[in-house]
Design a protein around this nucleic acid. Structure first.
Length: 607
DNA sequence: AGAAAATGAACCC
DNA sequence: TGGGTTCCCTTTTC
C-alpha cells in the first residue's frame, strides 16, 4: 500500500473545467493541470464546485501547475485517505449546497455552470484515491486492493507474487530432457563432471527469423504449419481471412478472404490429403479449401436461416479430424457436438450436448493414439473425455473441473497419455496419465494468460517433436521490464516441473503473442501477435556472438546497459533491415499497402 | 496525445 | 435464468 508515498513524480493533480453549456465547451471535457485546493479535495473527486470557484478556476487555468507543497499535501493525505476513499463522494452526507449537481445548479441559476473534477492519484482499477495502478515506464503497478493479477490470490500484487516469473534475461535454454533413467543419474553423478557439457539437443527457437507485419486485417486467431510443405504457414484472423505464407520465399503469400465471414477459430489438415484444409469459424460454418486451387466448399452451416440475433447464432470454435473414420468433429457455441462425414459432406446423427447447454465449446482434440477418444473443453469450466463410438449426453468418461473457462485441452502429441489444459484462472493443468486417477490434475502451473476480450485466447500447446512430452509453449499476458521495454514473452514451460525453460521475445515486438505454434519437424516457432505473424529459429553461435558485440557497441554509445527505448509497436523498429524494406519511411508506406510488408529479422543485426 | 472502438465473460439481482 | 453492467497489463485509428 502507498508505495508511491513521497514520490512527487507519482503525484499529479488533475482537474477539469467543463461547462455544461455547449456554447463554451466542445463535446469532450477539457482538462488542464492546475493547483488543487484541499477544500475541493475534501468533497471527493467529482464534487461540484462552489459558485465562486468559477472565477478562480479561470484564473488558475492560466497559471502554471507545478508546486512542491502539493506533493507533500498529497503524501500526507495518503495515509489516512485509504480507508474512506472507496466511496468518497457517496459517503458525504447529502443535502448540502455543494452536493447539487452542476446540471441542476445551472438549470436553477440560469447560467452556465462549471464542474470541477479533481483527481489526485485515482486508481483506475478500483477508482479510489491514494494510489494508482498502471504503467510506470515499463513496469506495471498493480492495484493493491485487487487480488494478484497473476495467481489471483489476495494479499499481494504481481510484483511480490511467489509465482512470479523471474528468469534471468538471456538465459540459456535448459535441456528438454527431464525424465532421467537411473542410468542418467549414474552418468550425471559419476561421469558428467569429468567431461565437457554436451550441447543440449533441444533448441529453443528464440531468435526472430522473419516476420510478416500486418499480414492480416485483424488480429491473428490461429496458426498451422503445412503438414508436408516445410516452409508454409497458414494463418487465420478475426475477420475470417485465411493466409498462406511461405516464410522462406518471403514474398510468396496468398490470402483467401471469402472462406469465412468472421473469426476463423480453427484449422485442420486432412491427414489423407494434405492439400485440403478444413476451417471452422464463428460464422457457424465449416469449410474445406483446396490449397492448390483455392477452391473452397462449405461442409456445414449451423446458421442456415441467417442472422436472427445473438441468441440463435451458432459459432464454431472446436474442431478436429478423426483420420481413422474420415470424421470431422465440430462443436458449437451452444454446447453441442456435431459429427460430419468428410466424404458425404453430411452430418451423422443428431448433435449431442457435451457441455453445459448454451455454453461455448472452446476446443476439441482427438487422441493421437486412439482417435475415437475425444477431449473437449468448454466455457462451463470443464474439460471432458469422451468415447466417440458411443456418444450420448452425460456419457463422458470423466469431467475435469477447472476454476474458470477452459481455453483449450490437448492430449500429448505422441502417446496421447497426458492432458494439457489452459484455463482462464491463470493456470496450466497437466494430467500425466489419462488412464490413472484423473480426479485432480497432476500439476497446476501458475502462468499469466488471463482472459481479455480483445485478445485471442491463450492456449498452451505441446511441442509435437518432443518425445518426452514435457515441453509446452504459451504466450504470456503479463509484461516484464526488459531493459526499459515492457515485453510479453512467449514461454516454454517444462510441464513436468512447471519450470520456465525459456522466454522468447524481441524488443521490437511489444505486443502480446497469444497464438503460437511449434513446427512438427523443425526447430521453428510461429507466433501470431496482433495482426502480424513471426517466425523464430534457434539462435546460432554466430547470432549469439553478433548479439554480444551489438550489445557491447550499444553500451559504448548509450552508456551502461541502457538501451534505446523502442516506443513503437511492430512498425517502429529503429534498426535497419537487410533488404532495405524496414526503415521508418518505408514502413509508413507499408502501412497503407497491405500484405506487402515483410521483415527479415536477421537483417536487423547488420548495423 | 488522448479518445474511442472493438466486444467476451463474470457478476449481480 | 436473463439482462444489464462492469471490466486490470490491448491495439489501432483518428
Amino acid at each position: 500500500m502507498g508505495r508511491n508515498v513521497g514520490n512527487p513524480d507519482a503525484i499529479h493533480e488533475y482537474r477539469s473545467l467543463a461547462s455544461y453549456s455547449h456554447r463554451h465547451m466542445g463535446p469532450t471535457t477539457r482538462a488542464r493541470f492546475v493547483h488543487n485546493r484541499r477544500r475541493r479535495r475534501r468533497r471527493g473527486p467529482y464534487a461540484a464546485p462552489d459558485d465562486d470557484d468559477e472565477e478562480e478556476d479561470q484564473q488558475e487555468a492560466s497559471s502554471s501547475s507545478s508546486s512542491s507543497d502539493e506533493g507533500e499535501e498529497d503524501a500526507e493525505e495518503e495515509g489516512s485517505g485509504e480507508v474512506d476513499d472507496d466511496d468518497g463522494e457517496a459517503a458525504e452526507p447529502s443535502g448540502k449546497e455543494e452536493e447539487v449537481s452542476p446540471v441542476a445548479a445551472a438549470a436553477r441559476s440560469g447560467r452556465k455552470a462549471s464542474i470541477t473534477i479533481s483527481l489526485k492519484k485515482v486508481c483506475k482499477v478500483c477508482k479510489s484515491t491514494g494510489h494508482e495502478a498502471g504503467f510506470k515506464g515499463a513496469v506495471y503497478i498493480d492495484c493493491p486492493r485487487k487480488p494478484c493479477f497473476l495467481c489471483k490470490m489476495p494479499g499481494h500484487t504481481t510484483l511480490t507474487c511467489p509465482h512470479r516469473v523471474a528468469m534471468e534475461h538471456g538465459v540459456i535454454p535448459a535441456s528438454r530432457r527431464n525424465t532421467n533413467t537411473s542410468l542418467d543419474y549414474v552418468f550425471q553423478s559419476q561421469v558428467k563432471g569429468k567431461i565437457p557439457m554436451v550441447k543440449p539437443q533441444f533448441l529453443i527457437p528464440n531468435q526472430l527469423e522473419c516476420g510478416n507485419i500486418k499480414f492480416h486485417q485483424r488480429r491473428v486467431t490461429c496458426l498451422e504449419f503445412h503438414p508436408t510443405k516445410n516452409n508454409v504457414l497458414l494463418s487465420g484472423d478475426k475477420k475470417g481471412l485465411l493466409g498462406v505464407w511461405d516464410y522462406v520465399k518471403l514474398h510468396e503469400k496468398i490470402t483467401y478472404d471469402s472462406v469465412h465471414s468472421c473469426i476463423l477459430n480453427s484449422m485442420k489438415f486432412d491427414t489423407t490429403n494434405d492439400g485440403l484444409l478444413y476451417t471452422a469459424s464463428s460464422d457457424g460454418t465449416i469449410s474445406s479449401t483446396d490449397l492448390d486451387t483455392g477452391i473452397g466448399s462449405s461442409l456445414l452451416n449451423l446458421n442456415p436461416n441467417g442472422w436472427n440475433g445473438p441468441s440463435t447464432w451458432r459459432m464454431i470454435y472446436g474442431m478436429d479430424f478423426n483420420s481413422d473414420k474420415g470424421l470431422l468433429l465440430v462443436a458449437d457455441s451452444f454446447g453441442f457436438l456435431h459429427l460430419l462425414d468428410r466424404r458425404l459432406k453430411a452430418r451423422i446423427g443428431d448433435p449431442i450436448l457435451i457441455h453445459k447447454k448454451g455454453s461455448k465449446v472452446t476446443s476439441l482434440h482427438c487422441n493421437p493414439a486412439q482417435p475415437e477418444v475425444l477431449l473437449s473443453s468448454g466455457n462451463d469450466h470443464y474439460a471432458r473425455i469422451w468415447d466417440t463410438r458411443k456418444l450420448e449426453p452425460n456419457s463422458a468418461f470423466v469431467s475435469l473441473a477447472h476454476g474458470r473457462v477452459v481455453n483449450s485441452g490437448y492430449f500429448s502429441p505422441q502417446s496421447g497419455n497426458k492432458i494439457l489444459t489452459t484455463c482462464q484462472d491463470n493456470r496450466i493443468r497437466v494430467w500425466d496419465y489419462i488412464f490413472g486417477n484423473l480426479e485432480s490434475p497432476s500439476r497446476e502451473i501458475v502462468h499469466s494468460h488471463d482472459f481479455n476480450r480483445h485478445l485471442t485466447p491463450f492456449k498452451a500447446e505441446w511441442d509435437p517433436k518432443d518425445h518426452t512430452e514435457t515441453v509446452a509453449v504459451i504466450g504470456r499476458y503479463i509484461s516484464e521490464n526488459y531493459n526499459g521495454i515492457a515485453l510479453h514473452p512467449i514461454d516454454f514451460i517444462d510441464t513436468s516441473t512447471g519450470k520456465l525453460l525459456a522466454e522468447v521475445m524481441d524488443p521490437d515486438i511489444t505486443t502480446i503473442s497469444p497464438v503460437n505454434k511449434l513446427h512438427p519437424r523443425d526447430d521453428i516457432l510461429a507466433s501470431g501477435s496482433s495482426r502480424s505473424i513471426f517466425i523464430w529459429k534457434p539462435k546460432t553461435e554466430s547470432d549469439a556472438t553478433e548479439e554480444r558485440n551489438r550489445e557491447k557497441a550499444k553500451e559504448f554509445v548509450y552508456g551502461s546497459g541502457s538501451r534505446k527505448k523502442s516506443n513503437g509497436k511492430h512498425e517502429n523498429s529503429s534498426d535497419d533491415d537487410s533488404d532495405g524494406s524496414c526503415d521508418g519511411k518505408k514502413k509508413k508506406k507499408a502501412k497503407k499497402t497491405r500484405f506487402t510488408h515483410t521483415i527479415k529479422g536477421k537483417g536487423k543485426s547488420k548495423v
